[in-house]
């Protein structure tokens, strides 16, 4: 018998400001350390990847989600369960192409940028929330799903919404995985 997933959900919650401000301080520090926006973006992505690879265990242990059978199911789980659980928001999901492996998460509200007025001057190609991309990429990789995750639109850059694009590449080790089953 598995234990109930949310025995004391409030116990694991912390003040959102702590996380948001810490992230802000981190990006500010990185902007000081690296001159090029690309370097900052890359750093944030790598960092996110590290978080994602660990976070996915926590996610699977606590969320009790079932095995997914399609990419669209996975995208829904990310939006409705994972984002809800960790950031308290639920982005909407759209599918972008006919082969159903490209999805967009559209964030109406993004807690990470709550205190951000605008990007610093001369930092126009900074992806402020690039950490999120890394987290999603890292987490998916740990469940054997290679994916490209990038920001397609960003409100901080003047777009009307914030949109994260997830493109699933081929499923890794498909044959091996089938045989095991």
């Amino acid at each position: 018998m598995s234990r109930p997933a949310h025995r004391r959900p409030e116990y694991r919650k912390i003040n959102k400001d702590l996380f948001v401000l810490t992230y802000g301080a981190l990006v500010a520090q990185l902007c000081k350390d690296y001159e090029k926006d690309e370097d900052v973006n890359k750093y944030l992505d790598t960092m996110g990847y590290g978080i994602g690879t660990r976070l996915v265990e926590d996610f699977l242990a606590r969320s009790c989600v079932r095995r997914c059978h399609s990419y669209s199911e996975i995208a829904d789980i990310i939006a409705q369960v994972a984002f809800k659980m960790y950031l308290g928001i639920t982005p909407s999901v759209t599918c972008n192409n006919a082969s159903r492996n490209e999805f967009s998460l559209i964030l109406d509200k993004n807690p990470l940028v709550e205190f951000v007025e605008e990007l610093p001057t001369g930092r126009s190609s900074l992806c402020y929330c690039n950490l999120l991309c890394g987290i999603i990429r890292g987490a998916l990789e740990m469940v054997h799903l290679a994916a490209d995750v990038t920001f397609l639109q960003d409100r901080l850059k003047g777009d009307s919404v914030t949109e994260i694009g997830i493109t699933f590449l081929k499923k890794l080790d498909e044959k091996k995985y089938r045989r095991k089953k």
């Binding site: 003040n15 981190l26 590290g50």
Partner: peptide, 28 residues
């Protein structure tokens, strides 16, 4: 409200990131 795990992991990554750049000689 955000989740605690997120903050803990972010903090860990911050620490390891800063020390990694020190190893590569970027900062003392």
């Amino acid at each position: 409200m955000a989740d605690e795990a997120l903050f803990l992991l972010l903090h860990n990554e911050m620490v390891s990131g800063v020390y990694k750049s020190a190893e590569q000689g970027e900062v003392e």
